[in-house]
């Protein structure tokens, strides 16, 4: 079936498929970036330094927060058209924000224990990887806040649902990257 957009172009794909393809391409690019930072981290992995400094409980808490937010986004994305997805969006945004606060607190704790970017290649790689990841969580929280702000003015129609679908993909990805970081930086060295 052919569709038309507002400029009269014929569409082979519907808007949700287009949004998902665009987001998918962006996530491939992000995946290459995080993959290479992760490889750098693995090549500088230092089990002794990790055991001295990283806190497994903190890592587990951070992981739980992102899993919760990803679950919330999954519920928001798959909510029935009649249902209001905003409570789930809010849950996602709040748990993302708590993640950022907890991560900032943990960075301070590590620095006070004298694990810094300049202390060792392990430190450089850990802070770079976790720091860039935290930036992408921050970007996700901002996007969720924008969706929430728009949602108040505009009914959650079809176009909102398309945006929501793409944003949810972004959250799944960001959470998955954290699961990898948790696995490599915490579980691999501490268990």
């Amino acid at each position: 079936m052919m569709r038309q957009d507002d400029r009269g172009s014929r569409m082979m794909w519907d808007a949700r498929a287009r949004a998902n393809l665009g987001m998918g391409m962006f996530l491939i690019a992000s995946g290459v970036l995080f993959g290479l930072l992760l490889i750098a981290f693995i090549s500088f992995r230092d089990a002794a330094l990790a055991a001295q400094n990283l806190n497994l409980q903190m890592g587990a808490l951070l992981t739980a927060l992102l899993v919760l937010s990803a679950f919330a986004l999954w519920r928001a994305r798959n909510s029935k058209p009649a249902a209001d997805p905003r409570p789930w969006l809010l849950t996602g945004a709040v748990s993302g924000t708590v993640f950022l606060i907890a991560q900032a607190y943990d960075f301070r704790r590590l620095i006070s224990r004298n694990l810094t970017v300049a202390q060792s290649p392990f430190g450089s790689a850990y802070f770079t990887l976790a720091g860039i990841h935290a930036l992408s969580v921050l970007a996700g929280v901002i996007i969720l806040a924008m969706l929430l702000a728009l949602g108040r003015r505009i009914e959650f129609g079809e176009r909102r649902a398309d945006a929501l679908s793409a944003v949810a993909l972004y959250w799944y990805f960001t959470s998955a990257v954290w699961l990898l970081i948790f696995g490599v930086a915490y579980l691999w060295s501490l268990l």
Partner: peptide
């Protein structure tokens, strides 16, 4: 990271 934060990636 190396140049601005005294990181050690390439040191």
């Amino acid at each position: 990271a190396d140049r601005q934060l005294n990181g050690l990636f390439f040191n």
